[in-house]
Design a protein around this nucleic acid. Structure first.
Lengths: 218, 218
DNA sequence: GTCAAGTTTTTTGTATACAAGACGTTCAGA
DNA sequence: TCTGAACGTCTTGTATACAAAAAACTTGAC
């Protein structure tokens, strides 16, 4: 986007935070990071600014930058919004998408199915992501696509978690089928509703998961 | 958010861009801005980074920062997304909102009506904004509220434009009534649908407006 | 032993200095 | 006159220097 160093540093830090390599409220020391990346504080500060804007970091004046992992409530809220963005994408896609794209979507879904049967988690994630990204793109609304991708990426590590729940994968596949059907039929309302449920249930599953973890921790 | 100078400078520049005080593709010279704000380039650069993240400015490596006014297509896309965010807010609000908030909403709407009768544009804008912000807040989803506010603010100058169209104000008021009714009845689907239309029509009106301007310019 | 005020030490925020890439200009050659 | 390459200037990106504010530590009184 802008400069070379600050740019790549921001990306790396973003990955590190999203991968959970920092605990919540960890302080990101500028000089430490500068040494770690072998640059001065300037590009580090620019990177931290970017992460702050992205909501991954909170900067408190004269205090420093702290990683800001979303809490349970905020995550549920984010899943709710994600469900709406996906539902909107699907509604538009039902009206606007090309036959070629529908073919791609089918392809992604079949590969998802195959990955599930092969117990190939990495492949499943990749194709599942492709499935959803195709829908965003086929909304015919670049702005919506960008917003959906942004939030999708933000939620990525948490989606991974909830997919571990027993039976969730199979259920998810069946939901994909319904989405495909609605899109193929060009039924906007159905596509929106089915997609909303598909994503919303992820949020709920996630909720169950953390509730379970909390109980287990007691 | 972070530091004092860069912060206020970013806000000022944002206002200037949103107010249309810069033409599209205007280059924002760092030293010029630094002199203008009586600071060094450092806080200017931080401000520009923020504006870039907000989508108001495009930074091209080794070339500089350019103001990036959204084109007609992008604006229509943004209105489409705004309609979805508002519809989602309204759907949740229909299920979650308090009686007190419903009263506030009624109050805002009545003041809108009065402002329209008084031809008091400023007052109308203020109360209309309050009306919508109440709905965001009553979605019970802080994340959604924040996203809606962000986009709402971004579209502000363009909403102003389209409201100048003949008869739009009266129509807008009648749409508000429908929204209120759906919310009062606690009907999520109706609230979502009516709200979506209310905002979507703004996008369409805006489209008409620029089409008209284009014709007039020929 | 505890609390508080003063001092030292860190750390952020800003200014300035320096390096390197992009653009414009000029001058030579066809 | 047009093309193109070398030079010079300008601007961005990064490093460093400095100032101010906050945190941490010391010291003294109770």
């Amino acid at each position: 986007m802008a400069n070379r160093h600050a740019d790549t540093i921001a990306d790396e830090l973003e990955d590190m935070i999203l991968d959970g390599r920092f605990a919540n409220n960890d302080r990101l020391d500028e000089v430490q990071l500068a040494q770690r990346f072998s640059v001065s504080r300037t590009p580090i500060r620019e990177a931290l600014q970017r992460l702050t804007q992205a909501g991954l970091v909170e900067q408190i004046p004269r205090r420093g930058a702290f990683v800001r992992q979303p809490g349970a409530i905020e995550l549920i809220e984010m899943f709710e919004v994600m469900a709406e963005l996906e539902a909107a994408s699907a509604r538009f896609a039902a009206m606007r998408m090309t036959d070629a794209a529908l073919g791609d979507l089918n392809d992604a879904n079949e590969k998802c199915l195959k990955a599930m049967q092969d117990q190939d988690a990495d492949s499943y994630y990749r194709e599942n992501e492709r499935f959803h990204h195709i829908i965003y793109a086929q909304s015919g609304n670049s702005f919506l696509e960008a917003e959906a991708k942004r939030l999708h990426r933000r939620l990525k590590p948490f989606r991974r978690l909830q997919l571990r729940l027993r039976g969730r994968l199979r259920q998810s596949m069946s939901e994909h089928e319904s989405i495909l059907e609605a899109l193929a039929n060009g039924d906007p309302e159905m596509a929106a509703e089915v997609t909303r449920q598909h994503v919303a249930v992820q949020g709920e599953k996630f909720h169950h998961l953390i509730a379970t973890l909390k109980i287990a921790a007691e």
